[in-house]
C-alpha cells in the first residue's frame, strides 16, 4: 500500500487510473447525451425529484384499505425489520466468518509445522472468495427460485456473502495484530491454541468488533435492497410506492433509510471509539 503510493509512483498511478476510466467508458460507449431525457422523461424526473422536497406524511392513494396502519407506523415497522434482518444476517455471517478467518489466517498457524498451514490455508481462502464473489441479491434470487423466499432464506442470502467478506477482513486483522504476546505465551509453556486464543485474540478483538459494526451499515443497506425481491424491508414498500407512482412516499422510505443509516453510524462510531 505504502509502496504503491510512494511519491515517484503517484503520477503514473493517477495517469493509469484516468486512462483506464476513459478506456472503460469508450468500450461501454458511454454517451453523456443519454442524460438528456425526452420531454416525458423530464416530466417524470421532475415528479420524482420533486418528491424529495415534500415527502409523504400520509398515504398518497385515493382510497386506503379499512384498518390500514398509518404511513409513519408502516415506515417505522419496515425500518425496524430492515435493521433486524441486517443484524440477524451480520451475526450469522460473523459466526460463520470467525472460524473461516482463523483457518485462513497466517497467525493461527504460528508454531505449527509449515506444511500444515500451506495445506489448509489456500482451500479455505478460496472458499472465502467463493462466498463473497456472489452478491447477496443473486443469492436471494437463487433462493427465491429454489425454495421460495422466506425470512430465513433472506437472512441466509445476506449472511453468505457477509461470512465471506468478514472472514477475509477478520483474517487480515488477525495477521496485522502484533505477535509479541502470542510469542510470550509460547515461551512460558502455553500451547499453540492458548497462545493464539489468549495472547493474540484479545488484542485483535477490539478491531474485529469495530469492523463488524462498521459493516452493519452496509448490511442495513443490503437488507433494504432485498426488499425488492420480496422480503418486508424498506425496499419492498419503496418499490410498491414507486410502481404506483407515489413518488412522495418513495422519498419517505428513502429518508427513513437515510436516517437509519445515519443513526447507526453515529452509534457505531461512538462504540468504536470506546473500543480503542
Amino acid at each position: 500500500m505504502n509502496r504503491l503510493l510512494s511519491r515517484e509512483s503517484r503520477a503514473p498511478l493517477l495517469f493509469g487510473l484516468l486512462a483506464g476510466g476513459l478506456l472503460a467508458a469508450l468500450l461501454l460507449r458511454l454517451n453523456p447525451l443519454d442524460l438528456w431525457a425526452g420531454t416525458a422523461g423530464w416530466e417524470l424526473a421532475g415528479k420524482i425529484l420533486g418528491g424529495a422536497f415534500r415527502p409523504a406524511l400520509d398515504y398518497e392513494a385515493a382510497t386506503v384499505p379499512e384498518g390500514a396502519a398509518p404511513l409513519w407506523l408502516k415506515i417505522l415497522g419496515a425500518a425496524g425489520r430492515t435493521l433486524l434482518f441486517a443484524i440477524a444476517a451480520l451475526s450469522l455471517g460473523a459466526v460463520l466468518g470467525v472460524p473461516l478467518a482463523v483457518l485462513g489466517s497466517e497467525s493461527a498457524w504460528r508454531g505449527w509445522p509449515v506444511w500444515l498451514g500451506r495445506l489448509v490455508r489456500p482451500p479455505v481462502r478460496l472458499f472465502q472468495a467463493a462466498l463473497r464473489s456472489v452478491h447477496e441479491l443473486l443469492w436471494a434470487v437463487l433462493f427465491l427460485a429454489a425454495f421460495g423466499l422466506s425470512d430465513l432464506t433472506a437472512v441466509l442470502a445476506l449472511a453468505i456473502p457477509y461470512a465471506g467478506i468478514l472472514s477475509k477482513i477478520y483474517g487480515e486483522v488477525l495477521d496485522e495484530t502484533p505477535v509479541a504476546s502470542q510469542r510470550a505465551l509460547l515461551a512460558l509453556g502455553g500451547n499453540r491454541l492458548q497462545a493464539f486464543t489468549l495472547g493474540l485474540l484479545p488484542r485483535a478483538l477490539p478491531d474485529l468488533v469495530s469492523y463488524t459494526f462498521y459493516r452493519l451499515e452496509c448490511a442495513v443497506r443490503a437488507s433494504a435492497v432485498l426488499g425488492f425481491v420480496g422480503i418486508s424491508t424498506l425496499g419492498l414498500y419503496l418499490r410498491q410506492s414507486f410502481e404506483n407512482g407515489h413518488y412522495r412516499e418513495v422519498w419517505s422510505y428513502l429518508y427513513a433509510l437515510l436516517l437509519l443509516v445515519f443513526l447507526l453510524d453515529l452509534w457505531s462510531s461512538t462504540l468504536r471509539r470506546r473500543l480503542k
Binding site: A180, S181, R183, A184, L185, A187, L198, G199, P202, R203
Partner: peptide
Amino acid sequence: PQDRGLVPNL
C-alpha cells in the same frame, strides 16, 4: 522478552 509480551488491552 525485550518487548515484554504483555497483552496491552487486558
